[in-house]
Simulated scan of single mutants.
Amino acid sequence: MSSEIIGLTDWLKTPPGAYLLGWERTHFDEAVSDVFGYHALQLGLPELDALQANRMPHKWLALESPLPPVAPAPADGATAAPAASSRRAALLTDSGALPFPESSLDLVVLPHTLELSRDPHATLREVSRVLVPEGRVVISGLNPTSLWGLRQRRGHLYQRWGYDSLFLPKTGEFIGYWRLRDWLRLLDFEVESGRFGCYRPALTSQAWLDRFEWMDAAGERWWPIFGAVYFLAAVKRVRGVRLLEPAWKTRKAPAAAPAAVANKEPAARSRPPA
């Protein structure tokens, strides 16, 4: 990997980046399609529309810094360089201080947001604050205990010797799957589902990635926790709060059952003739 690939945005344009982005797009669509409510927020990664399959009326994309301007198309008809993303952020904000009232959002998605955040603990606390009781958070992150993570650690070792051979982006701190589950549990989140994906080796060539396509099916069966990326969905639990479902149908009051008379004196028994 050349030294030019220094950030996640540039790395996603490479063959392994596109491979990971395609896997995440599929699973974000599955995770958010059946989450209902009114307000949803995606924090970070404009290259992926993680709320595309969600049907909430109000959806926002929040970023910590503005995107670079999109280059105009050349006048002579030549092909322009691809832009980083055509999506525009609805707001610019610090992930540790979201401009939303407490308990105001129904869904928050964090695609690689925590590993790129300056303070992932503060980001998770803010997500817990703005989510309504029973609200959902969906998170994806790079798995340090994978073939990709192993090559990244080896690349850091080579950097000490003067070689630049990192495979994954240089920025960010990768958070382990089980470590993240512990963080969520401390914030009263209950993990509903979790899985791993992208089991192909850490290769930069599209041709070689295609040759190892069989490892995706084999990895899910034989070594599921060693996928290059993890994906989990959690729900915010609040003690003493019970979600009330709307009464779609008016129920008729049950007919009163006839009451039995318990204090009525029993009828006098007929005596036999003397």
Rank of each mutant, 00 (worst) to 15 (best):
S104E: 08
L45R: 11
L147M: 10
S140I: 06
P66Y: 07
G155E: 09
A75L: 15
G77W: 06
L51A: 01
Q42R: 01
A73F: 10
H112S: 06
L150A: 15
P169H: 07
L92A: 01
A89P: 10
N143K: 05
D106I: 03
E115V: 08
G44N: 04
V35T: 10
Q152S: 04
P101T: 03
V137G: 03
R55A: 14
A50C: 02
L63E: 11
L98P: 02
T113K: 03
S65V: 10
E115Y: 00
R136C: 04
D94G: 02
E47H: 08
A90Y: 10
L131G: 01
V130P: 03
W60K: 14
V130S: 07
Y163S: 11
A71W: 06
A80R: 12
L91A: 13
T113H: 08
P120C: 01
S103F: 10
A81Y: 09
R160F: 07
A89C: 05
L91T: 13
D94W: 00
T79Q: 13
L150S: 12
G37Q: 05
V70W: 09
L43A: 04
P99V: 02
A80W: 06
P133N: 05
R136D: 11
D49E: 10
E64A: 14
E102A: 12
A31L: 01
R125H: 10
S128T: 05
R88P: 07
H112T: 00
G44W: 01
L110W: 01
S117N: 05
G96N: 04
F100M: 09
Y158L: 15
L43G: 01
R87Y: 07
P144I: 05
G96H: 04
V130A: 05
V108Y: 04
W148E: 02
A89V: 03
H39R: 15
A81I: 13
A53L: 00
P144M: 09
F36P: 01
H39K: 13
A80C: 09
T123D: 07
P82W: 07
